[in-house]
Nucleic acid binder design. Structure first.
Lengths: 107, 107
DNA sequence: CCGGTATTCTGCCGCCAGGCTAATTAGCTG
DNA sequence: CAGCTAATTAGCCTGGCGGCAGAATACCGG
């Protein structure tokens, strides 16, 4: 896998299981067991997904007794936003053109 | 690889070579040769990258004689934006908290 | 039709990703 | 300490990715 930060973040996001985990963590902190519950996956597999998310800085883990509650960290999403924003101009530009075309057709 | 739309888009973006290709296409259309020029990669490899980008709907290709000029398509980025936006609240929320903390410390 | 240029297709390789099981670590509790 | 629960580590598959070389396809120009 590519080893630059943005690639690592995008790779972490490019899996529906991991995105679901992030969505769950958007509600509140959760233990690994709690995160694993909705899935038909064994614990080590979920643990592996969490490690990918941690490597991307999207999840941090603390220790409370034998539990390791996970927390969502949104900082890396800034880079993703920046990437997409770079094309927003084009995006809007083309929508503008489309709008113009539609207006012309309506006349 | 996961086969849902968003995962396919994010996977396509999760490679620096492909992001560079997209950046180049942000300027103007370009042939495969032109796209390959900046890289130390063989043509079939670049062609493969383009196929990944096409599968994600990020690039479209037309035919002009023996050239197949590539064009950037930004529509799939909307889903990425939506994904990130889902966490914007948290992001700003935490920044607000950080701001408050900083303000308190300054007093 | 032939030769040249642009591009893709086919096969090959090494490596990493995502899944599993089994074993191990870490920490509470009796 | 013994035993329970939570979580990770180690090791093993399978499949897909990113790279290559070589062959095939597509199209122009003479």
């Amino acid at each position: 896998m590519a080893s630059d930060r943005l690639s690592i973040t995008l790779t972490a996001l490019a899996d529906p299981t991991r995105r679901q985990i992030l969505a769950r963590l958007g509600q509140s902190e959760a233990t690994v067991m709690e995160l694993a519950a909705p899935f038909a996956l064994k614990l080590p597999t979920v643990s592996k997904h969490l490690k990918v998310l941690q490597r991307a800085g999207l999840v941090s883990q603390s220790r409370r007794a034998q539990w390791r509650p996970c927390r969502l960290e949104v900082a890396p999403l800034a880079d993703v936003t920046e990437l997409v924003e770079r094309y927003r101009n084009l995006w809007e530009e083309r929508h503008d053109r489309l709008d113009q075309l539609l207006n012309q057709l309506q006349k």
